[in-house]
Design a protein around this nucleic acid. Structure first.
Lengths: 294, 294
DNA sequence: ATTAGTCATAGACATGATCTATATCTCCTC
DNA sequence: GAGGAGATATAGATCATGTCTATGACTAAT
């Protein structure tokens, strides 16, 4: 099994056979002719067969040399392809980037960066895998994604988290509750209105529930939805007051279809975190992407 | 084109990936673990990508490492196959042997050796290529055969000729000319009988013509044939006196269907020569075959 | 005959592969 | 939680061997 042959010798053999000249092979390999001559001789000794006819014009393969060449040629071509591929991966001309996160973060936060990245590195395939924070963390630990984008705080010793933009959650309502514009409500006052919250297992939902509990209240939603788009839509249509991330409704706030309902309690801002596995190397594509996200 | 990578590193990479352990790879390669660790690190530096995740149980491939492996694995398999094939060629389990010569030498002289060789090395394909002496020589020079078997003398500086058995040509006749048995004829006397000779361009024919010329005679055949079998058959049926190689009619002489017609001039014996190209390496199979022929 | 190309050989040299020894880390067991 | 058994990493010394220069030998063509 795999004799004690130096594979480097096959490279020399390949070029000598391909060019039909030890001198040419030496040039291709940036070696001197005697080195090549010596290498070929050594290969012949180790294989135990004469591989080349030497003549005044160069070298040509013997029968046995031809047989060896038929294998080695394929082998060398594969190595060349491998090296090209590695070059492409390194320069991000090729490869893939697998990102985990919530749909809302993909849509409202990550989208422009994903677009930039795709335009700049069109050869990289993007795989977006959505899930809740704990799901994303396990995808990461299973090696199914390269990085995860979730709400902070994340406390996990195995993860390395980079804090990204700060996001401010807030309550918003539509025209139907126009009278609340400009007012600052207490928690009790707010809770008299129908409340629309994101589904139970989300980070944002947990955060606002905790905040209310801290002040001795229990915030129970009248409507519970599974997407940020629905939170926005329901609020616009006057079905209640939605708790959303202010940055995600920037358009609606600006055009006036939604307005913020201020609370007398400060809602702590939350940050977006970009997670990768601590102590595990990060792919070239992932490294570049993280660089591009502020 | 073929970066400055040492292909030896790919061998280490292959085993590390295959075994999932630098320690195991080191064992497979008869190296120490630090050597393998160092080699992998070097490969990663040269490729510019991290290829392995290191963990407490061993190593596993990164995405990029997996891609590299898919190429390198094929490449290594080809090299292994090549090495097996070379081993087979060297040990004569595989390969081919191309011999040139005349049909009569194949049938009457070489046949038993060819049989022996085939029994002993059944994996070697035998190619027999028949032709006249000059044809055989050019086949040899064109590299279309490994060795040639012809009548001596051969004078060609490019050829290396080994003399083999000595053959004695002689005149033979069948029952029809029974009165010649035991007699010794002169050339003149012989020429009164119908003579059967091998075709003009053969070595044997040239030799006997020269011999007669030397004594001032011109030996013209009444019948000219193209095979030794016909020489024998025609003589047996009494169509004339055939000039044949005595060793090739040993059976007929013994059983009495032919007898020798002695001449008062000594016919010089001729040797069989085995030719190979001088200064060119000889295949393992050809070397072995030449050894087996006395 | 000369020249210009080929490959082979010899011996010096230096690169770099490999080793030993040790550190570091993680997982698993008690 | 302490300790052991396994893994890989690091550092530095050593020495094998790949590589070079210089030269030789040979061939083919001018």
């Amino acid at each position: 099994m795999s004799m004690t042959n130096n594979y480097e010798l096959y490279k020399v053999f390949y070029w000598a056979a391909k060019t039909g000249s030890l001198t040419q092979a030496a040039k291709a390999l940036y070696l001197t002719q005697p080195s090549v001559s010596h290498a070929i001789k050594q290969l012949e000794e180790r294989v135990g067969l004469t591989l080349f006819y030497r003549n005044a014009k160069g070298v040509s393969l013997t029968q046995e040399g031809k047989i060896l060449f038929s294998y080695i040629e394929q082998s060398q071509i594969l190595i060349s392809l491998a090296e090209e591929k590695m070059e492409a991966l390194k320069s991000l001309e090729s490869g893939e980037l697998r990102i985990g996160g919530s749909d809302s973060l993909f849509k409202h936060y990550l989208l422009p960066y994903l677009e930039d990245f795709h335009v700049r590195y069109p050869g990289i395939k993007l795989h977006l895998k959505h899930g809740t924070t704990p799901e994303v963390i396990s995808y990461l630990k299973e090696g199914r994604i390269d990085l995860g984008v979730v709400r902070m705080p994340i406390v996990d010793a195995q993860l390395e988290v980079t804090e990204s933009t700060e996001l401010q959650d807030c309550f918003v309502a539509g025209e139907r509750y126009a009278e609340l514009g400009g007012q600052t409500l207490t928690m009790e006052e707010l809770m008299k209105y129908p409340i629309i919250l994101f589904s139970r297992n989300s980070r944002v939902r947990m955060a606002i529930n905790e905040l209310f509990e801290k002040y001795g209240h229990e915030l129970k939603p009248d409507i519970e939805v599974g997407s940020v788009d629905l939170l926005i839509e329901f609020a616009r249509r006057g079905l209640g007051i939605s708790y959303v991330t202010r940055e995600f409704v920037a358009k609606e706030l600006k055009e006036g279809s939604l307005f913020e309902v201020k609370l007398d309690v400060e809602i702590p801002p939350s940050k977006v975190g970009i997670m990768v596995m601590r102590n595990l190397p990060i792919s070239a594509a992932a490294t570049k992407f993280i660089e591009m996200v502020p």
